[in-house]
Simulated scan of single mutants.
Amino acid sequence: MQPGDLIASDLGARAAAPGDLDQAWQVLGRVMDPEVPVVSVVELGIVRALAWDAGHLHVVVTPTYSGCPATEVIEADIRQALEDAGFRAPQLERQLHPAWTTDWITSTGRERLLAYGIAPPLGSANKRSLLGDNGSVNCPQCGSAHTELLSQFGSTACKALYRCCDCREPFDYFKCI
């Protein structure tokens, strides 16, 4: 490196243009969760904040839980989508505190989960939910409240496996956390 050379993190640094943050939110609204590909990272509430910092877009991301195996894939997808949209060297910050909660899933995200066949979380991430008192989990296929818990763990750690006693279809329930 020679005096005056740019360091890699300064590559592509520029002043923020009007509409940059709105455009970035729109781009991220099209980045889908790899485990539930009908819900965007924005609808899941894992993109916490966007800001312009030192000439780059700064993105704060909170994974659904600290051990989520898709975290690196999600961050790579976010970075790639932003770079493809013209944001040079976006800076991603993984923020674990406060921990992500299903309360951050948007209403559109909840509707998309249901349409995909996953029962969205009921209520909020309160103590009763965490202790398994979820009330009635309706079947996303037929709407019946006559369902039963088969396993506290479904296809991923953040889901439980249920079965509808009426239509007999198994389904995932996105647990309140």
Rank of each mutant, 00 (worst) to 15 (best):
N126L: 12
N134G: 11
S124L: 04
N126C: 14
R128A: 15
A115E: 15
K127R: 09
G123A: 07
T147Q: 01
N126A: 13
L122I: 14
L150G: 01
C139T: 01
N134H: 14
G117P: 04
L150H: 02
N134W: 15
Q152G: 14
Y116D: 09
F153E: 05
V137T: 05
S136N: 11
Q141V: 01
K127N: 06
S144A: 04
D133Y: 13
F153S: 06
L131I: 12
H146Q: 02
S151Q: 12
A119W: 06
T147D: 04
T147E: 04
Q152D: 15
N134L: 14
Q152M: 14
L149D: 08
C139S: 01
G143P: 04
E148M: 06
P140R: 07
E148V: 03
G123Q: 09
E148F: 03
S124K: 07
S129I: 09
N134Y: 15
H146G: 02
P120T: 01
P140C: 07
I118W: 00
L150Q: 02
L130I: 12
L150C: 05
R128P: 08
K127M: 09
P120M: 02
P121Q: 08
I118H: 02
L130A: 11
G135P: 10
G135K: 10
L150A: 01
N138D: 00
S129A: 15
G143F: 07
L130C: 09
L130M: 14
G135Y: 09
P140M: 07
D133Q: 12
L131M: 15
G132P: 13
A115V: 12
Y116T: 07
N134T: 14
S151Y: 12
S151V: 10
S144M: 04
A125V: 12
L122F: 09
N138G: 02
S151N: 15
I118K: 00
C142P: 08
D133W: 11
A145H: 07
N126R: 14
H146S: 03
G135F: 10
I118V: 03
A125T: 15
P120D: 01
Q141G: 02
A119R: 08
N126E: 15
G123K: 08
L149N: 08
C142N: 10
C142T: 11
S151C: 13
G117S: 05
V137L: 06
T147Y: 05
G117F: 07
T147R: 02
H146I: 03
P140Y: 05
S124P: 06
P121Y: 05
G143S: 04
L149H: 09
P120N: 00
C139M: 02
G135N: 10
S129L: 09
G117W: 05
S144G: 00
V137A: 01
S136G: 11
C139I: 03
K127L: 11
F153Y: 01
G154D: 12
C139R: 01
H146E: 03
L150P: 03
P120S: 02
S151W: 11
L131V: 11
S129H: 11
N138S: 00
L130D: 08
G154N: 12
G117I: 05
S151K: 13
P121M: 10
R128Q: 15
P120I: 05
S151I: 10
H146V: 04
G143M: 04
Q141W: 01
L149G: 09
L150F: 01
S124G: 07
